[in-house]
């Protein structure tokens, strides 16, 4: 209790805030993982990642709402809500591959410096944000409020046990209501999808032949080529995975914060994602996950325990700045090589 007082948490509902940090952290990790994969395999920082995130949300919105989102608000769903998620994942993945072909492939072929690739990714980000603005207008859009199960679970009233979702809801309500945690089904979905994707990804990278090839190429593309690995194919897959992760993060964000889809929804996350991977160690996949949860925890802490909630972003950036100066390789990253 002494510690809680010192931390300024004596009045906070700790389980509830922890839950908050977990679902927010899942989202950040998911987003940052995509950044980290491209960085680890290609060594480039794809600053258009947040634009893919934003387009992923639009892809999902268009998939379940139909073309009505082009001009106005989405009033009713054309297809089931869940179709939004695969649409966002696949759409984001394809978009990332296209970006790679247009903005990175020519530079890679020319052996251009890494910084030109950074600049070209900035160019892509500008184009994508502006295209979204032209296509969908700057207006904030979202799914019909009634269709998204966004209300926190508190008391299981009016449950329909026939529905699988409601069984889950009942179980969760029984678990959580004592501790005062309020969490919505969508937030649970965010956590589940994030864990599934992260586990799947670490399995692919650690256990499969594809993962081995990816690690080889990440270590040294020329070695990969000599071993008969089609490096271009590996790059394409890396970009697809990265885009898919961005897209999934985008649609989950859109669902959890419904209505939240606008052309600038990626802006705040762009820099936050950067912070996450710097914190975890650039290019470290585990680091991205750890960093994501850490940042979420810090944000939630600053918002609940201190009166400087309005400065949470500034705190995150100062931490980021500090980490870069003291330990540029991040918490879990390998030391940076500096050859003569």
């Amino acid at each position: 209790m002494e510690i809680l007082h010192f931390l300024g948490l004596e009045n906070a509902n700790i389980p509830a805030q922890l839950m908050n940090a977990i679902w927010l952290g899942s989202l950040y990790s998911l987003f940052a993982l995509g950044y980290a994969i491209v960085f680890s395999v290609l060594g480039i920082l794809n600053l258009s990642h947040s634009a893919i995130f934003m387009w992923g949300a639009y892809f999902g919105l268009a998939a379940s709402c139909g073309t009505s989102v082009y001009d106005g608000k989405c009033v009713e769903l054309n297809h089931a809500l869940w179709t939004a998620i695969p649409a966002a994942i696949i759409g984001g993945g394809i978009l990332a591959v296209v970006i790679d072909r247009i903005a990175f492939y020519p530079l890679r072929k020319r052996n251009a410096p890494r910084l030109s690739q950074l600049i070209s990714s900035i160019g892509v980000a500008i184009i994508l944000v502006n295209l979204a603005q032209l296509r969908f207008t700057a207006e904030r859009k979202g799914f019909p409020i009634a269709d998204v199960p966004n209300t926190p679970i508190n008391v299981p009233n009016g449950l329909d046990i026939e529905q699988p979702l409601d069984v889950a809801r009942l179980a969760l309500a029984l678990v959580f209501q004592e501790s005062g945690v309020s969490i919505s089904p969508i937030q649970i979905l965010v956590i589940i999808v994030a864990i599934l994707l992260m586990v799947g990804l670490s399995y692919v990278v650690a256990r499969t032949r594809l993962g081995k090839a990816m690690r080889t190429v990440a270590f040294n593309a020329r070695v990969g080529n000599l071993l008969g690995i089609n490096t271009e194919l590996i790059y394409m897959i890396a970009f697809f995975i990265s885009g898919a992760l961005a897209g999934s993060a985008g649609i989950l964000f859109a669902l959890a914060r419904n209505p939240a889809v606008d052309p600038f929804m990626g802006d705040s996350l762009a820099l936050k994602g950067l912070t996450v991977i710097v914190l975890g160690g650039l290019g470290s996949i585990r680091g991205a996950v750890v960093g994501g949860f850490l940042i979420a925890l810090i944000e939630v802490y600053i918002n609940t325990a201190t009166k400087y909630g309005y400065l949470d972003q500034a705190f995150v950036f100062m931490l980021f700045f500090f980490i870069l100066l003291v330990r540029p390789q991040g918490i879990l990253g390998q030391p940076i090589e500096d050859r003569a």
Binding site: L115, L118, L271, T275, L282, Q313, A314, F317, P328
Partner: peptide, 25 residues
């Protein structure tokens, strides 16, 4: 300025954000 390349770029992005947030608040 001890940092190089991408590390320098993102550190300075961070600086810019800090300046903006400090001015804002």
């Amino acid at each position: 300025l001890r940092l190089r390349n991408i590390y320098l770029a993102i550190a300075t992005i961070g600086f810019g954000e800090i300046v903006r947030l400090i001015i804002l608040h």
